[in-house]
Design a protein around this nucleic acid. Structure first.
Length: 593
RNA sequence: GGGGUCGUAGUGUAGUGGUUCAACACGCUGGCCUGUCACGCCGGAGACCAUGGGUUCAAAUCCCAUCGAUCCCGCCA
């Protein structure tokens, strides 16, 4: 291991996985990691691995000195070496290996670096604690399955870039050090040394910059942008994530939806070889909530929520009657094949309902046009027709008596549970669906005020403008989300390009003139110097890669260096303390001095 | 912020309903082995059972707290 090399390194002239007939009889040099050794005493086999694959090297003591032989024999797995030797056919091929017909007879070698004992075996099928894996992320990254994820990710990004560049879009970078804004997620903040006591914020998205780029006349912008949100993490949420960000001028909502449909069609065709049908299905926000109990409906299976309230207006079943007196509604799910479930299975299901904030449900089995249930004798003809008219034979009808406000969401979650539990989801399907006509405002109970459901730069639907001050509940937005298999891929909106309207909206969400001036003065001003009509969309790229990779595991699997649920990077141990001097420089004192 | 699950050698697991319980596999290590390919065979070392407190004659095991991991709710315009 001469670090100050006096000679040329043993640089490879062929890759491990590419050893073939062509090299037979030739002397080659391969570089790589010692994947595994099989020491038979007199004879040593080494599986040498590089990115291309694995090849077997044979160390025969006849060919090298005793010291050299012992030196290579003593190397631990994952040490990195260069090996020179002659390629020959194997006596007994190993058909499990692409290079299994060949082997390299070692003549000379160079040790590039020795490995210590490994903290875990990254090639074992054993599941190792994820924190340990992340601490030694580089070991895991050497696994071909893991590497493939990042090859996929790279190809996806490449395809996206090509798509937009071919359509005359300009990729522009926007600042990472920017300004903290109210509304939306919590910002990560960065202290400023040159401006003591002041802070930058990391962008939650390039939202304002891309609008300003439109005002700047770029007309078509996109960016693969890093975004930051200081909120609690989830399986599908990281504090920093990558977004495909798009904005266009002189367009309407339909133009953006169409463009994105084309992009996804191309992308899925090129990367996965899957034909996606366009245009995508569309559903209004209200209908999505009513049919699927979610604003990100998974449409890979049916089982839509049915509202049977009208059928049960005069019911003799007391729990339903009592519930309806309190303004509750009667919702039903029809589980295909559920009539075959045992009493026990149905009861277990009922018990699980508490997880969703539900007391349970009333169940009716539908068999050969008959309703079978302990309640069936109380059913009126009208109620029977409601159940039979909606459900199919062999279904289990689950009747929920729930609040009209959040009941649909609760039942929507039960719908997902049932689909997973009884394998109703067609796993190989890619169901894209646009959710449109979002409400403009959302009431924040905690703060007792209305906020923008999407964001405050969104254009209200023109016909709802007059309700902006008087009837906030019913103002709809020119906003849209794209949902794939029940995952929100992303969303966007047509933006406000009129400074007066923008001020009105700020006011409607309770921002004072002073706050508007302080926080968004630059935007209002920009809008007043000639802003084109514009709009755009943004997609979570990590989530897209995750889905295209099969949608298993967590988002952490498609990020090279992800953080744990508590926002920690086990590899670098970020976040961490900084020195007193660093704090002094930026004028910060911590609580413990 | 709230709730669920989990935490035992380097790694993965067993043990857990109170007192011979700290075991097994992989890895590591000493020895043997010239055709293996998850090489094999014989031997060895390695864990105060996440941390702190409590209950008890007795705690890996029961209770509480803390920390960490993970999943969910809130939150994420």
């Amino acid at each position: 291991m001469d670090f100050l090399r006096s000679k040329e390194m043993f640089k490879r002239n062929v890759k491990c996985g590419e050893i073939s007939e062509n090299e037979i009889g030739k002397t080659v040099i391969v570089n790589g990691w010692i994947h595994r050794k099989r020491d038979l005493g007199g004879l040593l086999f080494i599986d040498l691995r590089d990115r291309s694959g694995i090849v077997q090297v044979v160390v025969d003591p006849k060919n090298i000195s005793k010291e050299k032989s012992e030196e290579i024999q003593g190397l631990k797995n994952e040490s990195v070496v260069g090996i020179e030797g002659k390629v020959k056919n194997r006596l007994e091929p190993n058909l499990n290996l692409p290079t299994g017909k060949f082997e390299i007879l070692l003549q000379a070698f160079e040790i590039f670096s020795k490995s210590e004992d490994l903290p875990f075996n990254q090639f074992s099928s054993q599941e190792v604690d994820e924190t340990v894996r992340l601490k030694y992320r580089y070991l895991d990254l050497r696994r071909p399955e893991i590497r493939k994820v990042f090859e996929l990710r790279s190809r996806i990004i490449q395809a996206i870039r090509t798509f937009f560049i071919n359509r005359d879009f300009i990729e522009i970078e926007t600042p990472i050090l920017t300004k903290s804004t109210p509304e939306g997620a919590r910002d990560f903040i960065v202290p400023s040394r040159l401006n003591k006591g002041k802070f930058y914020a990391l962008p939650q998205s390039p939202q304002l910059f891309k609008q300003i780029l439109m005002i700047g006349g770029f007309e078509k912008y996109f960016q693969i942008a890093r975004c930051f949100r200081d909120e609690d993490l989830r399986q599908d949420r990281q504090p920093e994530f990558t977004q495909l960000d798009v904005e266009m001028s002189f367009i309407e909502q339909g133009d953006i939806l169409k463009l994105m449909e084309e992009m996804y069609k191309d992308l899925f065709k090129e990367i996965l070889g899957v034909e996606i049908e366009i245009p995508f299905q569309r559903v209004s926000y209200v209908d999505a909530k009513k049919k699927f109990g979610s604003d990100k409906p998974d449409t890979r299976f049916g089982m839509e929520i049915k509202d049977l309230t009208d059928y049960f207006k005069e019911t003799g079943i007391q729990i339903i009657r009592d519930g309806m007196k309190n303004g509750k509604v009667v919702l039903a799910l029809f589980l295909p094949g559920g009539a075959a479930l045992s009493r026990r299975e149905v009861d277990d299901l009922k018990e699980q309902m508490t997880d969703f904030g539900l007391n349970g449900f009333i169940d009716f089995k539908i068999k050969k046009g008959e309703i079978i249930s302990s309640f069936s004798k109380y059913l009126t003809e009208k109620e029977k027709s409601g159940i039979l008219g909606t459900g199919q034979p062999d279904n289990l009808a689950l009747i929920f008596v729930v609040n009209s406000k959040n009941g649909f969401d609760q039942v929507g979650r039960v719908r997902i549970l049932l689909a997973e539990k009884y394998n109703l989801v067609k796993k190989d399907k890619f169901n894209f669906i646009w959710v449109v006509d979002f409400p403009f405002f959302a009431y924040n109970e905690k703060e007792g005020r209305y906020e923008a459901e999407h964001h405050p730069f969104t254009m209200p639907k023109p016909e709802d403008l007059e309700k902006l001050e008087t009837d906030k509940e019913h103002v709809k937005a020119l906003a849209y989300d794209l949902v794939l298999n029940g995952n929100e891929l992303g969303g966007g909106s047509i933006r406000i390009h009129n400074p007066e309207l923008q001020k009105r909206v700020f006011k409607a969400i309770g921002l004072s003139d002073v706050e508007v001036e302080q926080k968004f003065g630059f935007l209002v001003q920009a809008l007043s110097f000639g802003a084109p009509p514009h709009g755009g969309i943004a997609f979570g790229l990590d989530r897209l890669v995750w889905i295209m990779n099969g949608g298993t595991g967590s988002l952490r699997d498609v990020i090279a260096f992800p953080k744990t649920t508590s926002g920690i990077c086990p590899l670098t141990e970020a976040p961490n303390e900084v020195s007193k001097k660093q704090l002094n420089d930026v004028g910060i004192k911590t609580e413990n001095g």
